[in-house]
Design a protein around this nucleic acid. Structure first.
Lengths: 202, 202
DNA sequence: GCACGCTGTATAACATCGTTCTACAGCGTG
DNA sequence: CACGCTGTAGAACGATGTTATACAGCGTGC
């Protein structure tokens, strides 16, 4: 940062290669600390000790920054559902579901960024949508193994069953994060939702 | 505020009496036409042929306006799930589910306003949260009738089962509106989700 | 060793947003 | 008819996203 009260403003060239990650780290910190509304270009630049223009040089605009942030968040979500394959199908399925909810509750702002209104995941072709598909493929594999390799009864294909699973998980954590409906006993309700899925998909 | 303190109702200006609804109509039009980002205080005031101050006089601030708009939207959602009680339990349940999805697809921006990040429904005590509870109660009644008056097997109480239903409906339409996952054949997928609910709740 | 150009940075400026301030018009009341 | 209260209009303020302008660092030619 310029900083120096006296003397010529030190326009030191920051390490360009790191700037990308530095800005992304800063943006994620601001998001987690102050929410999506607090993520302004100026606030992120301040957090990263950089001029606001750095955001536009690296990410084009604010939307590009949020898109990159969503990719990061999706990677975290993917990691949360990608359970060790040595575990048996049903406990693995349950562990993945628990991991999904755990991620959302641990990083509510990041989860909201992913699925928030008009977010970057929706736009087909974006990096975020590619990572979103990666999460979807994990769900497909989980459902396939849970059903013993066959298409669960009553569904057109495994993808459709996986879509229903995602529907259930997302609906549950999104309503819980929003404080909508019955807020108490969400852990148990979630468990019973998973029970219903396991019963219906096997 | 004067309003109805005591004595005869002091006659306000005709323009004022209608201003509340005029502004709300304008805000809804702008929302449906240009999305939530387009709903600025100035744009709403322009649409309503009024100065921006009118919004602050009637709703306090932009948040108040959006809150009132969310109440309206919730009323529409409630109306969409409130099926005639003369219908038998299961078809009534299915009709309500279809009505839920139909409302969301017909008014995606209004639906997103209701459940969008940090929306007004989340804040307990707000008018919007009261109307949200009304929707929840309709779901409770639907589930109760579907299960023949008893608590569905495997659930702690009817409220928990209704919460699971809401979870499923919301997850489905929210992902569909966001274009996330399998976008093709959403109608059939939704149908199968409802099938799974009916099987698990009866 | 040194001037030059390219890349990317910092500063300042612009349009717009939410919100507030100030002055004024309309309507009921003495 | 004059007065006061309420709500309105217009300007103004701080903050935001974005763009334009000027300039510093670094590689490159001699």
């Amino acid at each position: 940062m310029s900083a120096g009260a006296a003397g010529p403003p030190s326009r030191r060239r920051t390490a360009s290669e790191r700037l990308h990650d530095v800005l992304l780290d800063a943006a994620q910190d601001v998001l987690d600390r102050e929410g999506l509304a607090g993520v302004t270009v100026r606030a992120v630049a301040r957090e990263a000790q950089v001029a606001p223009m750095g955001v536009y040089n690296r990410f084009g605009n604010k939307e590009g920054l949020l898109g990159a942030l969503a990719v990061r968040a999706l990677h975290g979500l993917w990691h949360a559902v990608d359970v060790d394959r040595s575990v048996d199908p049903e406990p693995r399925f349950r562990q993945a579901c628990d991991g999904y909810r755990h991620f959302a509750l641990a990083h509510p702002r990041r989860y909201a960024l992913i699925f928030g209104g008009g977010g970057p995941v929706a736009r087909t072709g974006s990096k975020a949508s590619v990572y979103g598909h990666a999460v979807f493929e994990v769900l497909i594999e989980l459902v396939q193994d849970l059903a013993g390799g066959r298409t669960p009864q009553g569904f057109a294909d495994v993808g459709e069953a996986a879509q229903v699973v995602w529907t259930a998980l997302h609906g549950a954590v999104h309503l819980e994060l929003g404080g909508i409906g019955q807020v108490s006993g969400s852990q148990d309700t979630y468990r019973r939702l998973i029970d219903l899925l396991v019963r219906g998909l096997r």
